[in-house]
């Protein structure tokens, strides 16, 4: 199963033009992965974004999760304490990196934030190829304070997979675009490229 597609899709709970947060109905062990491209398809355009962070914990901060003693695995603790899982939530932070309107893919901020409570789903390989083929999508990610080197490396690895046999060509194009964007930050460029080839 593709990560992040198990069970019900998360929904947008905080919406902004540059980033948004989506939450699963409860705690999930297989949320969207770091750097994964996701899509919000509700509204006049489909917004594409990159997963930059995932957090799981209690829905109510006033009831912190207490770690039990003993030798049980996490799955066994959940099975023995069925009340815990419904009290937990998994939240995913996404940085927008483009949108698709009609036949056109734009490596720009969307005209409006995604609708609150809209479903967030994995971008299809076709959407990923469409949105990432020229590497222009990297500009929004590089400019975001939420995207560190690990995120950029992860998104490049994931997008390369979507390009299949053309993965090598895509990586070269994206690397060139990254070099252009980070010409003043060679150390950062090196760090990201090491992450891509790791």
């Amino acid at each position: 199963m593709t990560p992040g597609t198990g069970g019900d899709a998360p929904r947008v709970v905080e919406a902004g033009l540059r980033s948004f947060v989506c939450a699963y109905e409860r705690y999930v062990e297989d949320p969207f992965r770091l750097g994964q491209l996701v899509a919000v398809r509700e509204g006049p355009w489909s917004i594409l974004g990159c997963v930059v962070d995932t957090e799981s914990g209690p829905e109510d901060p006033g009831r912190p999760l207490q770690a039990p003693g003993g030798s049980l695995t996490a799955a066994e603790v959940f099975a023995e304490n069925p009340h815990i899982r419904p009290l937990l939530r998994t939240r995913v932070t996404v940085v927008a990196c483009g949108y698709i309107e009609g036949e056109g893919a734009f490596a720009l901020l969307p005209p409006a934030p995604p609708p609150l409570l809209a479903r967030v789903e994995s971008a299809t390989p076709a959407e990923t190829m469409h949105a990432t083929s020229d590497g222009a999508f990297l500009a929004l990610l590089v400019a975001s304070a939420l995207c560190d080197d690990a995120v950029l490396a992860a998104v490049l690895r994931g997008a390369a997979t979507a390009h299949g046999a053309a993965a090598g060509e895509f990586t070269v194009r994206a690397g060139k675009e990254l070099a252009r964007l980070l010409k003043a930050e060679p150390a950062r460029l090196s760090s990201i490229l090491r992450g891509v080839t790791a």
Binding site: A79, E80, P82, H83, R85, P86, L87
Partner: peptide
């Protein structure tokens, strides 16, 4: 309400 299954089938519900 709380519905808590202990080693029986069914989803927990709060």
């Amino acid at each position: 309400w709380a519905v808590l299954p202990y080693r029986v089938p069914g989803e927990a519900a709060l």
